[in-house]
Design a protein around this nucleic acid. Structure first.
Length: 272
DNA sequence: CCAGCCCCCTGTCGGC
DNA sequence: TGCCGACAGGGGGCTG
């Protein structure tokens, strides 16, 4: 559920609380929360100062002096900052906590336990399996075309493949395909130039609007301040099964594509 | 290379 | 009302 816009909103929300702060304590409350490629123990973070808080794909990247903490929220993960005197029992899904010198704490909560925290000495190597950042200036139309070229594969699973483009999940894949009028099962290498251009434009547009609306709160996602995002109020396809297409009135249909619920308009997105 | 399936895990919801 | 199965979907792993 947390995709690029949600993760970006989390990063912007926690960044001002963390920058230049020294970590005085770091604890995990579950032996599965630490990712497998993690180096050293979580307490390695103690004494280090936060230098930057950024995002790469769906990862939150917190860089310290000689180590970085990466967090993947997966489905139900949440990151928020609270006073360290807030009882740990106040959060029944608390998985990890990092105490700062100023008495604030960064807490990681995750009801479904899919989320992970990772420590690495080299963020570039850790994230080398990730594809392009779709909102970067360097992600040009020709680079997008290169992502599709020769890929004899349905377009939606390709958009969900983090090694091709990093940050798109089920929601924004359905939304961008709907706006671009492309059926989710169309083969990537069969898209016409106008279709490729529309998809490129709409991927960036729906992600940017998602950030502007501070993410989509379908069920679990909350901003670090606990409030809901508003991106869901602008959806044309995702979660609108049976409701009229906002463009043509045809009921939105739901199918399964690559084991994912997939929403589309059979009139606006014909399967050529 | 790619599709399909399983697994991880738990809260929520619809049907009976 | 209460129980049960289906569903939600990001990512890794495996098979064919």
């Amino acid at each position: 559920m947390p995709e690029l816009p949600e993760v970006e909103t989390v990063v912007r929300g926690i960044r001002p609380h963390l920058l230049n702060q020294r970590i005085v304590s770091a604890l995990t409350f579950s032996d599965t929360v630490l990712g497998s490629s993690t180096v050293g123990g979580f307490t390695t973070l103690c004494g280090k100062i936060v230098q930057s808080v950024t995002r790469r794909g769906k990862y939150v990247v917190i860089t310290l002096e000689d180590i970085a903490l990466l967090v993947h929220l997966r489905m139900t993960g949440r990151l928020y900052v609270t006073a360290s005197y807030t009882p740990l029992e106040a959060d029944r899904w608390l998985r990890a906590t990092i105490t700062l010198e100023n008495g604030q704490e960064l807490r990681f909560s995750d009801s479904r336990r899919f989320g992970r925290v990772y420590l690495t000495h080299d963020v570039a190597i850790f994230t080398q399996h990730l594809g392009a950042e779709p909102l970067e200036e360097s992600f040009t139309f020709s680079q997008f075309e290169a992502c599709l070229a020769g890929r004899h594969r349905a377009i939606k699973p390709l958009l969900l493949d983090q090694s091709v483009i990093a940050g798109i999940g089920n929601i924004y894949a359905d939304e961008s395909l709907h706006h671009a009028h492309i059926h989710p099962l169309r083969l990537a290498d069969s898209l016409t130039t106008p279709e490729r251009h529309a998809l490129y434009t709409w991927i960036r547009a729906v992600l940017q609007q998602g950030i502007a609306e501070e993410g989509a709160s379908i069920n679990w996602y909350r901003k670090p301040d606990g409030e809901k995002g508003n991106a869901q109020s602008h959806f044309y396809a995702y979660g609108r099964t049976g409701q009229p297409c906002k463009t043509c009135g045809t009921p939105i249909e739901k199918i399964r594509v690559a084991q994912r619920g997939t929403h589309y308009c059979p009139h606006c997105q014909p399967h050529a």
